[in-house]
């Protein structure tokens, strides 16, 4: 899946120990949610939408401790 703002692939962040997460443009939330739901991936979405320097709003999808980042990354990549 391509980030419509950066034109780069959407990726699963794994920094830190709090579980993986995905930063996505607000415009693509539903697309990502549909994909995660279809693959039974549990997650929750931040309520805040942040725009930096006037760029398109982004938000965060939190996957939590139990999620396999690599598996979710494959799911995202398969939607490209």
């Amino acid at each position: 899946m391509i980030d419509v703002s950066t034109k780069n692939p959407v990726y699963v962040s794994t920094d830190g120990k709090a579980g993986p997460y995905i930063v996505v443009p607000v415009l693509q939330i539903e697309e990502v949610r549909t994909l995660l739901d279809a693959n039974d991936v549990s997650y929750w979405v931040d309520e805040d939408a942040i725009s930096l320097n006037g760029e398109p709003e982004i938000t965060v999808i939190n996957l939590g401790h139990g999620s396999e980042a690599a598996t979710v990354q494959k799911i995202l990549d398969s939607a490209s």
Binding site: S13, D15, G16, K17, A18, G19, Y21, N62, G64
Partner: peptide, 14 residues
């Protein structure tokens, strides 16, 4: 910056 970004996720969700 990389460590802080990871800590941020723990701070926010924890």
């Amino acid at each position: 910056e990389t460590e802080l970004s990871g800590l941020a996720q723990a701070y926010v969700t924890g």
